[in-house]
Each structure stands twice: as structure tokens, then as C-alpha cells.
Design a protein around this nucleic acid. Structure first.
Length: 577
RNA sequence: GCCCUUGUAGUUCAAUGGAUAGAACGAGGCUCUUCUAAGGCCUUGAUGUAGGUUCGAUUCCUACCGAGGGCACCA
């Protein structure tokens, strides 16, 4: 529709010899000012000494000669605003179109044929799944779904640090406390993983305070890199390693299932290191250079805003930067036809990723052009910084569990069986958490307040799900009374909800172009509000009402848009709640 | 010191250079013998400071103040 109006204006401008003028079309905040509007003041100040209002009136006069059916009225307001009011016919046609599109509402083919890999979440085995992982996963999954909705073929990738000091710290503690398989054999993976996470935390703190423990941990770390028969010699360590690796990876899978993510590719850090190292060594002199015994990349030579980073330490060990290099190489090997490789991380990684990207541009410029880094802020506690010393660390897993428990409490009195209650509690709990992450722009930090953040009311995920569940219940009732959606009788009045629904595809476009899921979140809140208001002010299912069928059509349209919108945020809808 | 992000109601967040800056929470009032009250309706309240660009700035530019992150052998 936006395009149509644009073309319409261009046609008119041409007829009065003003073609080539730039203008933008937007939605006024108040429907009184039309459904779309544009402003000609800019044109006037630049080109002519004509009064903007006069020009606007001239253009509108020209337009009114031949009004498209979609537009009911065009008028001039303020200093040069041209306001377009869409017609009753346009809205009912749109509702009909949404019903035809059903699940495909808002979809398009702007990225069809494009192959995109999105890497996100990246939790490390032997460490807890923390809140940051929850945030990255939520954002990454949403981005992946939005890209798919525009026709892209998306591969979901997860990159995990399977070796390193953190593993040694966990193993050291597990060794101290005895092999735990006996006591934990029968409990869930998540419980076992929690135990391992605690062992990691303990190992981290003794590493700082106890020199003897530090030595032992470093020793374990060395042995973890051993291969072949060396492994046999250190069976005690590798038994714990194999056990712990499997448990934590399985526990992550349990969390992904709950969150609704299914990864296509897993990259392990230990396998990326040799790949990256080979690239670095092959480019010494060209890209990398030696400095104080280490091999570094002096990125500031190419861009003053970048800085030097170490790729291979003076001890000959590859750093994270080198592994990242290897990872990129492997990604393009996995899918040589890839058009875009997206990585989602917290913004603390932004600067070093830029340096790595610069290095890649000198080695594989064609790869670097296809790389895109999405960064998001950190989750912070309202009560101060999270720290393991203070014991106020909230893991992503515990946060999820607590939120679901909160919802379960609320669902208790519902007259459903236990399984239904559990399904709803899971979906609503996940929605509360995901929505609280996605409702704000991803760039800034997010303040997490234990009490308030997981709201089930107001501007929240559950509010959206609730609106959907109500609409669904209306639809069921209508089916029972045999009132089907149709467009034969259409009320004169245009409901506010109709003025919201047709905008959905524009919101999807904008969200995809900017990689900013919060636009969908804000939009859905407005749509839900409009529908709830509609619901409160009219009786929808009513055999006496000749407009009932159309109101049910609106309800269907709303439910399709809400379901799809929430899906794009990675949130599932319960049919009742 | 340099680089990135950020500053909007009491609080947590919105607002593709446009019209009267939107919500939610909180506070107060009303609303279930009509379809789910996790709802609806009403009241209350904000652009860090100083300049600049513009017909028009929360948005762009400069400086200052405040917050978060990053800046060589951790990831």
C-alpha cells in the first residue's frame, strides 16, 4: 500500500512538473490525521518560494481528480501535511487477504534463495547456562525466524568452548569431591549440569586464592590438550571430561527444546584452533607479525579505531581470535554458497570482533564482506552487579525455572489436567522471559529486576498470549454457533484493530532490515490492545448481529497476525490459558 | 587517555527528521447474571546540560556531565 501511495504521488508530481522530488510516507500517530501522510514543507524550503500549504492543496486537488479505490479521502492539514485516509473497502479487502494468507501473513520473498548462517547462544560445556546465553539465544532465534519469514534458508549454528581453563577448573573440583555419577545417576541432566556448574565456580575461586590448586588446575588444563595414548595415561581426567561434556551438552539441549531452538551446526573450539592456527602461520609477514614472542595483528595500521591483538601467544598457544578465524573458515567450508554469516554476541565482544574481521578482510575479503555482527547489551541486576562472590548469580536455567514456576502457580486453579497445565506454564513462562528481552532495542543493557521483570500483565509476553487465547476462544464459540467469517455484510464503521492489522508486513520489513526484533514486539502490544478494546466494546459472536461474521473475520485475522508475530519472536501461543 | 554503546514520567522501556513525545509498572477511581478480569475504561506524570544544522530535532553534528563495555599474550 505504501508503494501504491508513493506511485500515486509521483504520478501527480509528474503531472505538475515536479517529478524527482523526494518525500517520505509515514503513519501519523493519530488516526484523525489519516492512515498515511507525507509532508511537502521540505520541498518548499529547498526549491520554491511557494507556501507549503498552497502546494499541498494543489497536489491534493490534482489527486482528488482520480482517487484509487483504496483511498477514501485526502486532505491537507497543518503546514503542508497531506493525509491519506484509507477506505472501508481497503480494510475489508485486507482482512480477507490476511485470512487467505493465514500462516503466511507478513511473509515475503525479499531474501528468497539467500543462504544465511546465524550463530548464537554459544554456552560452554562445564559452565552454567547463564542469563547472557538466554539473551543471545532469544535474540538469535528471533533474527533467524524473521530472516526465514522473508524466504531465506537459515542455518542455526552454535559455537562452544570445549577446552580451556574453565574445563580444568570444573574437573579439578569434581576430582576433589569424588566422581559424582553414583549420587546423580538418576537425576536430570539439568541437575547434573548444575552440579558441574557449581564445581566450575568453586574451581574458579580456588584458582585465584590457592596457589597449589592453581598449579593442579593448570596441570589438568595441559593434559586436556593431550591426544592419543596421552589420553590413556590420564584416564581419571578424561573419564570426568567425557561424562561432564555429555551431561552439559545434553542439559543445553533440554533448555533449547524448552526455548524452541534447534541447531543445525555445532562448532567446537578445540577443532577450530588448528584451522585458525594454520591460517595465521601462513600469513605471517603478510597480515600478522611477531612482537615480544607472540604473533599479533596490528589492526591500527589499517584503521586507527582498531587495536593490536594477540593471535598466538608467546607460549605458542592460539587465542580466541585465532579460533574465531578458524571458525569463519569452517563456516564457509560448511556452506560454500553462503550469502551471509551472522554472529550474535554481547557487545563486550564488539571491538575484538572488528579486529578479527579486519584480519579476515586481508585474507579472504570475500568472506569478510558476508560477515555481520549483531551485538546486544548485557543483562544487569537492579540491585547491582552480578558476582559469584556475592552469591547473587542467577543462571539462565534457574531464571527459566523460576518463571515457569510462577506461571504454574497461577495456572493451578484452572480446570485442566496436569499435562495441559504444564504445557501452558512452559509456554507462558518462556514467553514472559523472551518478551522482556525482546521488547526493548537490543543495543542497550537490560535491567533485570527479580520482582518486576517477569511481568505476566501489561506490556508482557503473557498479555499477548492471553489476547490470542481469548480470540481463539471466540473462534471456537463462533464455530459452535455456526457463524463463519464472511465479507457479505460489512459494518460502516472501521474498527481501530483493522487500522493496525494491515501494517504488519511493513513492520516485518523494517524489523528484518534493521535486525531489531523490538519493533515487532511494540507492534504486537498495540495490536493486542486494539483487539482487547474491540473485544471489550462489542459483542463479537451474536446471531442477531448481521455484522457478526465480519467481526469474526477480524478475529481470525487478528489471531493469524498475533500467532505469526509471536512466532517471529520465538514465542509459541497456547490455545487457551 | 583512546574507541564503542547509552542518557526520555517516581521506575522499566517505545517513538523510520514531522503534527498533542507513546506504553507498562506504581498510585487513585470505575468495570464480570455478553464471548477467558493474565482483560477493559478513566485520572496522574518525562526528552541530562549548552550550542549548532533544519521550515521543523528525542532523533543529525560539536562540547560538557553521568552510566555501561572494550583497549597484548583470558574467553
Amino acid at each position: 500500500m505504501q508503494e501504491k501511495i508513493k506511485n500515486f504521488i509521483n504520478k501527480v508530481l509528474e503531472s505538475i512538473q515536479m517529478e524527482g522530488v523526494n518525500f517520505s510516507i509515514e503513519h501519523p500517530e493519530d488516526f484523525k490525521n489519516g492512515d498515511y501522510s507525507t509532508n511537502v514543507a521540505m520541498v518548499c524550503s529547498k526549491n520554491l518560494k511557494i507556501n507549503p500549504k498552497e502546494l499541498a492543496e494543489k497536489i491534493v486537488g490534482e489527486m482528488n481528480k482520480d482517487l484509487p479505490v483504496e483511498i477514501s479521502k485526502i486532505d491537507v492539514a497543518g503546514s503542508g501535511f497531506i493525509n491519506f485516509h484509507l477506505s472501508r473497502e481497503f480494510f475489508s479487502k485486507n482482512i480477507e487477504e490476511i485470512l487467505n494468507q493465514a500462516e503466511k501473513v507478513g511473509s515475503n520473498s525479499k531474501l528468497s534463495g539467500k543462504r544465511i548462517m546465524v550463530e548464537y547462544t554459544d554456552p560452554n560445556p562445564f559452565k552454567p547456562f547463564h542469563i547472557g546465553h538466554l539473551m543471545t539465544n532469544t535474540i538469535g532465534e528471533s533474527v533467524a525466524r524473521i530472516l526465514e519469514h522473508s524466504g531465506a534458508k537459515v542455518g542455526r549454528a552454535n559455537y562452544q568452548g570445549d577446552v580451556g581453563l574453565h574445563v580444568a577448573k570444573a574437573i579439578w573440583t569434581i576430582k576433589q569431591r569424588g566422581f559424582p555419577a553414583f549420587t546423580y545417576e538418576n537425576s536430570s541432566n539439568i541437575k547434573k549440569a548444575t552440579y558441574i556448574g557449581e564445581c566450575y565456580s568453586f574451581g574458579s575461586s580456588v584458582y585465584e586464592t590457592d596457589p597449589k590448586a592453581k598449579e593442579e588446575i593448570d596441570d589438568i588444563n595441559q593434559k586436556l590438550y593431550a591426544k592419543g595414548e596421552e589420553r590413556e595415561k590420564n584416564k581419571d581426567i578424561y573419564d570426568i571430561y567425557d561424562w561432564g561434556f555429555e551431561i552439559t551438552m545434553e542439559a543445553f539441549e533440554d533448555i533449547y527444546r524448552l526455548l524452541g531452538t534447534k541447531f543445525d551446526f555445532y562448532f567446537l573450539e578445540s577443532l577450530m584452533a588448528p584451522v585458525g592456527e594454520e591460517i595465521v602461520r601462513a600469513n605471517i609477514g603478510k597480515v600478522f607479525e611477531e612482537s615480544d614472542g607472540a604473533i599479533v595483528f596490528k589492526a591500527e595500521k589499517y584503521d586507527p579505531k582498531l587495536h593490536t591483538r594477540v593471535f598466538i601467544t608467546s607460549k605458542g598457544l592460539p587465542t580466541y581470535e585465532t579460533k574465531e578465524l578458524g571458525l569463519t573458515e569452517e563456516k564457509f567450508k560448511t556452506d560454500p554458497d553462503m550469502d551471509l554469516s551472522i554472529v550474535v554476541t554481547a557487545n563486550e565482544q564488539e571491538d575484538y570482533m572488528r579486529v578479527v574481521a579486519k584480519a579476515i578482510s586481508l585474507i579472504h575479503s570475500e568472506h569478510e564482506k558476508k560477515m555481520f555482527h549483531i551485538t546486544h547489551g548485557m543483562m544487569r541486576l537492579a540491585t547491582g552487579k552480578m558476582s559469584s562472590r556475592k552469591g547473587n548469580v542467577v543462571t539462565g536455567e534457574s531464571l527459566l525455572r523460576d518463571t515457569i514456576a510462577l506461571v504454574a502457580e497461577r495456572v493451578k486453579e484452572r480446570d485442566w489436567n496436569t499435562e495441559e497445565k504444564n504445557i501452558v506454564a512452559d509456554k507462558v513462562g518462556v514467553a514472559a522471559l523472551k518478551y522482556s528481552i525482546l521488547k526493548q532495542s537490543i543495543g542497550g543493557d537490560m535491567i533485570y529486576d527479580f520482582e518486576k521483570s517477569i511481568s505476566l500483565e501489561g506490556d508482557s509476553g503473557p498479555y499477548l498470549q492471553y489476547s490470542y487465547a481469548r480470540a481463539n476462544s471466540i473462534i471456537e464459540k463462533a464455530q459452535k454457533e455456526n457463524i463463519l467469517p464472511d465479507f457479505e455484510t460489512i459494518p460502516e464503521e472501521v474498527f481501530e484493530i483493522e487500522r493496525m492489522l494491515y501494517v504488519f508486513p511493513e513492520v516485518v520489513d523494517r524489523t528484518r532490515d534493521l535486525y531489531e526484533p523490538h519493533h515487532i514486539a511494540s507492534y504486537l502490544i498495540e495490536v493486542a490492545r486494539a483487539y482487547n478494546s474491540f473485544y471489550g466494546n462489542t459483542v463479537i459472536v451474536n446471531k442477531e448481529d448481521i455484522n457478526s461474521s465480519y467481526k469474526i473475520a477480524i478475529t481470525y485475522a487478528f489471531s493469524f497476525v498475533m500467532k505469526k508475530g509471536l512466532q517471529l519472536l520465538g514465542i509459541e501461543v497456547p490455545i487457551k490459558m
